[in-house]
Design a protein around this nucleic acid. Structure first.
Lengths: 350, 350
DNA sequence: GCGCCAATTTAAAACGTTGTAAATTTGCGA
DNA sequence: TCGCAAATTTACAACGTTTTAAATTGGCGC
């Protein structure tokens, strides 16, 4: 009994344009050379004569030859793949496709492809990493939102697998990362609030487990202590909370006797939620309170009321991450492997 | 010619970590079967006895065998790759990673990987498609923002290459798509503006060349004609324009004698820009004018002033696109290949 | 013209999988 | 016990590339 044939099985591979793709053999036949020679010529191996090297390249270009990824991968064990771990929170506003665009840009002109890997297993994102390493799914890996002792980083370091993180860790072994100076951001943001006369600043943090939460906290605390003002850091909410939850919390705080009058927001969403909550109680931005927010889109400067915003360029971040990862994969030790991007202030500090 | 028999010794198995990834040969040696048999057993081929089929599966599971993608791809010509064409405008707010998340979700549990392909060549996005088809880079393709006679679609249809678009075309040959009913959106949005007493609605369109621009226009015009009110459709700006350009335009229109008093916005950004521009001239949402906007994030309902918004679920869209594409690749003709998602109104039509 | 080393080119064997065709075993009736 | 088909397993050849080792060519001094 023959297997139940899939009806039409989109047999693209067998028909039409899928077939007849030029291979090394094609070029070999056209030039009268051996396949091996063609391979070496294209790989610019040293022992090939300049004449044949050039001829092979010419023919290859003419017929639009492109090496078969599968065959190369099978033979060499190199995948030419960069894996991006898709963040469960990436669906939210904060993380647009900017990072992805940046990474993709850095890969143009290289043989590397960008493969998006969702977290297969809920919660335990180490398993995705484990899976990729064990099964040789990629030559390098990129991910975000690191924790001080991020188990993913630990595993990758242990295995010696190339990677770059968006965010730092506290491992003693250094590893490649691109990060935003969240200390500087929080420090500057808070200082501006204070300079404007705000006397009870609030900082809205991301989930505590993430490294950059500490950096923000540190920056905020430094500014607050320098000024000697009281402050507030809500425990109940964080930047990953649903918008309405943040708004509700703010709404409750808005009516308290000791309500905060300045907000350092780590993202656009929390800023908007705050404005909304304040407005519900007749409080006006710039009058009863101020906000300084980090923005990753170009959105905030264009809404009313005007929020002071400090920009984080995620596209550039992605570009750098890609570049660093490629260098890392190529074993290039000369490139800087760690980058700390400075906040871009719309206005100079007063 | 007798093969050198290794006794089927369980110690032969390299159960431990690292170097040697298990292959069919590993399983063959462990079970004492031939590689071919193991392959068929794992593929649930009919002529394998139930006993061996089960045993092979057990061993495979035990050692965590996973077929080598490169080898499979090389042999079968199938790549197990879905290519997503990265939109040059995807970096903007409107298109978050929602679509990507949706697609990725639909691929979980399948052997398919999601490869993000940027437009290599500026402007001419047909070349990316051409490249993917010619070089067999993927088994299927997904992209957005179709035009009525989109050259990408034409090419893909011609070549018989599996794909799904986000957006429709006007080709007579039907092709798989998932689209949002932008006619319904624009019609409803405009009707609501009119019901609220607005007498000069404005519609902000995406670039005219895109199919859904026509749909929006049609929906808007239908509502406007039914009501017999004057209307306005700016030529100078579109949804892809930078935020400040939209804001400036709105600002100019706000002071005109015949200023529009109702806005049907195809996205969050244009809505915010409009609010800002109006506020500059002392015009208040809900008093001098109204907005009904399409939102793809959950942002708008949480800002102040309150914009009436109609939701488009891009994650669900991505999920559907993935599902349809997989069905298409498998030659499954039973699945609906075209889906038109209806707008989700926050409130029922009065 | 010969020998020999260097410069080129080449054949053959892999990488891990699947398809084809052939070989082996099994079951069962005569 | 044999024969013969059906059931099951198998060997072998690919897919397109790179690597290893071997073969061919060329140059040059004699």
């Amino acid at each position: 009994m023959s297997r139940i044939e899939k009806p039409a099985d989109s047999d693209f591979a067998r028909t039409a344009s899928g077939a007849g793709k030029p291979t090394l053999k094609t070029i070999a036949e056209m030039t009268g050379l051996a396949v091996t020679t063609v391979s070496r010529a294209l790989g610019n191996a040293p022992q090939i004569s300049e004449a044949t090297r050039r001829r092979v390249h010419e023919v290859a270009a003419e017929i639009g030859y492109l090496p078969d990824r599968a065959a190369q991968r099978l033979k060499t064990g190199r995948t030419n793949v960069i894996s991006v771990l898709l963040d469960p929170h990436g669906e939210l506003l904060e993380y647009g496709t900017s990072l992805m665009h940046g990474i993709a840009q850095s890969l143009v002109g290289t043989p590397y492809h960008l493969v998006v890997t969702p977290n297969f297993i809920e919660g335990s994102n180490v398993d995705s990493v484990q899976h990729i390493i064990r099964n040789g799914m990629a030559d390098g890996m990129i991910f975000s939102r690191t924790e001080p002792f991020d188990p993913r980083v630990r595993l990758l370091l242990e295995k010696g697998f190339p990677f770059v993180t968006h965010g730092r860790t506290e491992f003693s072994t250094p590893h490649p990362y691109v990060d935003y100076d969240n200390f500087a951001f929080a420090y500057e943001a808070t200082k501006r609030l204070i300079i404007r006369g705000r006397r009870r600043p609030m900082l809205i943090l991301p989930p505590r487990r993430m490294t950059f939460s500490q950096h923000l906290l540190h920056g905020f605390m430094t500014a607050v202590r320098e000024a000697g003002v009281p402050y507030e850091i809500p425990e109940e909410i964080n930047l990953d909370c649903p918008v309405d939850q943040i708004r509700d919390y703010m709404s409750r705080r808005a009516v308290a006797a000791d309500r905060p009058d300045g907000f350092a927001c780590g993202g656009e969403v929390s800023a908007l939620a705050t404005i909304t909550a304040m407005a519900e109680h007749g409080l006006t931005l710039g009058v009863e309170y101020d906000i300084v927010a980090k923005q990753t889109s170009r959105l905030l400067p264009n809404i009313q009321p005007r929020v002071e915003s400090i920009y984080e360029d995620l596209t550039e971040t992605g570009r750098l991450m890609g570049r660093i990862l490629l260098a890392r994969i190529n074993g290039d030790e000369t490139t800087d492997l760690q980058m700390l991007l400075q906040p871009q202030f719309s206005f100079p500090t007063p």
